[in-house]
Simulated assay, not measured.
Amino acid sequence: MAKKNTVSLEGAVMTENGLSYKGVIMEPVVEKCEGCDRMVDFEGQNFCPTYAQPARKWAGGVCNFATHVRAEMDKGGKVKINPLKASKRAARGR
Rank of each mutant, 00 (worst) to 15 (best):
R38G: 11
G23K: 01
K80L: 06
C36W: 01
S8R: 10
L84Y: 05
A71P: 08
E34N: 07
A52K: 15
H68I: 01
E72R: 14
V30D: 12
A86M: 09
D41G: 06
G11N: 03
E34K: 03
C48F: 04
A12S: 07
V7D: 07
G35C: 01
H68A: 04
D74M: 02
D37T: 13
M14N: 11
P28G: 00
S20G: 07
E16H: 12
D74K: 01
D37M: 07
M73W: 05
G44W: 01
A86F: 00
G44V: 02
M73T: 03
E34V: 08
I25Q: 11
F47R: 04
A52C: 05
T50E: 11
M14F: 09
M73Q: 09
G23I: 06
K22R: 14
C33W: 02
Q53C: 04
A66K: 00
Y51V: 06
G23M: 03
K22Y: 08
K57T: 13
K32A: 12
D74Q: 04
V7S: 10
C36T: 00
E16G: 09
M73I: 02
K22C: 05
R56S: 12
L84I: 11
M39Y: 08
P28K: 01
N82Q: 02
M26I: 04
V7R: 12
I81N: 02
T50I: 12
I25R: 06
D41C: 08
V29H: 01
S8H: 14
S87A: 15
L9A: 00
N46W: 13
M14R: 14
P49R: 00
T15C: 04
E43L: 02
G77S: 00
G61P: 00
G76A: 11
T67L: 02
V62H: 11
K57C: 10
